[in-house]
Amino acid sequence: MKIKIFYFARLKETLKFSSEDLELPDDLDGLSLLKLKAHLANRSDVWRQMLMGKLKVRGAINHALVDDKALINDGDEVAFFPPVTGG
C-alpha cells in the first residue's frame, strides 16, 4: 500500500524534508500508527530518536488527531509532529 507522510516543526528540521510518499509491503496486516513509527525508526538512530525518543510525538491520519492504535489504510495521509503550541 501507498501512503503520504508529512513532518512538521522540530521533526521537519531534523529530517530536512517535510513529506514523503511511502510504499509499504501489503502483508503489514492492520498497520497501526505505532507499527508505522517502528517501521520508520528502523531507518536510523536519528529516526528512532525522533519518533520513539524522549520527546513526545503526535500523529494524525487524514487530518484527524489519532493515538498509536489508529489503523492506516492505503492512500491515507499521515502526519507526525510535536504536541501543538499555537494560540
Binding site: 512538521f8 516543526a9 522540530r10 494524525a60 488527531l65 502526519a79 509532529f81 510535536p82 501543538v84 503550541t85 499555537g86 494560540g87
Partner: peptide, 11 residues
C-alpha cells in the same frame, strides 16, 4: 481547545 488540538507550532 485551540491551544491543545489545532496544529500550530511556535518557534
Amino acid at each position: 481547545s485551540l491551544k491543545t488540538e489545532a496544529p500550530f507550532w511556535k518557534k
